[in-house]
Computed example of a mutant assay.
Amino acid sequence: MTDGGLPLPRRSVGDGPAPLRFAVLGDSLSEGVGDRVDGAWRGWGALLAAHLGGPEQGVEFRNFAVSGALSRDVAEEQGPAALAFRPDVASVVVGVNDTLRMTFDIAQLARSLDRVCGELAAAGTVLLTACLPDPGRMLALPPPLARPLARRQRAVNAVVHALSGRHRTVHLHLADPVWTDDRTLWSADRLHPGERGHRAIAARFHELLADRGLAHGAPPAREPQQPPPTRADTLLWLATSGTGWVVRRCHDLLPQLVVLAGDELRHWARGTGARLDRRAEQALSAALAAVSLDVPRARMGE
């Protein structure tokens, strides 16, 4: 496993090292949505797995991620399955779906992520984590709709950032403008990476792992190798899977988002918008305190 970033010891099997075990936990981003190969999602996890082991060491890869998963699903369902696999390296990247639910609870998210990360870290697994883009900004929603989602995602990222320090994870800032402002990295739905984006994530995680002596293969190629989707492919996806996604979110989030937008407009009209920020910061502080973490208010934006 690892001790302060030292390389993983190689378990011997016969005359060579045992394969390195790599598990991916999370939602659609980690499932591979946006990077379709031969009719199935591939994604950054599979791209990274192919380049982790050295010339004499293979890699066993398991993707436990499920589209639509919440942090609670990762802790209660994917976590135990991953622990049974006994991974050397595991990614835990989740949180956007939590922000898109009426049931959003930053304290519950903090407990769930601390649980799954803690259990994997206690088993000696090297963890990969990431802060994620604000969905309202990615979808270019109008300010009254975007601001509530932005507060939620900032809080999620603050929790993930704090837990990355606690569990000494390999951490990637996918919320930074270098990622979010480059439209060539993102697919037609604006929420999932395309092949170029998945390759960029895999390459950056490989670079961070190599810096710790934990990646021994050559880095993944960054340039797409599949033909780009045609306009017809994109329109078909938006008319089928994309429409289904919008309908599911409308049933779940839209009623509450309308309420949140109304609250946003009222505070804007009164010049009291800062109260909403303070309310979010208080909820974040309480969530972090519940898992014995203390993060300065300035970290709310990370």
Rank of each mutant, 00 (worst) to 15 (best):
M1D: 13
T2V: 10
G5T: 11
L6M: 09
P9H: 03
R11D: 10
D15M: 06
G16I: 05
G26P: 09
E31G: 02
V33K: 08
G34T: 05
D35F: 10
G43T: 10
G45S: 07
A46W: 01
A49Y: 02
A50P: 07
G53Y: 11
E56V: 11
E56G: 12
Q57N: 02
E60I: 06
S67Q: 10
S67E: 08
L70G: 03
R72A: 15
G79F: 11
P80L: 10
L83R: 15
D88Y: 02
A90Q: 02
V93N: 00
T99W: 01
L100F: 07
T103P: 05
F104I: 04
D105K: 08
A107C: 12
A107P: 00
Q108E: 13
A110H: 07
S112G: 07
L113Y: 06
C117Y: 04
G118N: 10
A121Y: 06
A122C: 07
A123N: 11
A123L: 01
G124A: 09
V126E: 13
V126G: 12
D134G: 02
L141R: 01
P144T: 07
A146M: 11
L149P: 09
R151C: 07
Q153K: 03
A155P: 09
A155D: 07
N157D: 07
N157G: 09
V159H: 08
L163A: 10
R166V: 12
H171G: 06
H173D: 15
D176Q: 11
T180K: 05
W186Y: 08
R190W: 10
R190N: 14
P193S: 05
H198D: 11
I201K: 01
L208I: 06
L214K: 03
L214E: 03
L214H: 12
A215H: 04
A218E: 15
P220A: 06
P229L: 01
A232Y: 00
T234I: 14
T240D: 08
W245Q: 13
V247C: 04
R249F: 08
R249H: 14
R249L: 14
H251I: 03
L260S: 12
D263P: 04
H267F: 00
A269R: 15
T272I: 10
A274M: 09
R275G: 14
R279S: 14
E281Y: 00
S285I: 01
A286P: 02
A287Q: 06
A287K: 01
A289C: 05
S292L: 00
D294S: 15
D294K: 05
P296I: 09
A298E: 14
A298D: 14
R299W: 09
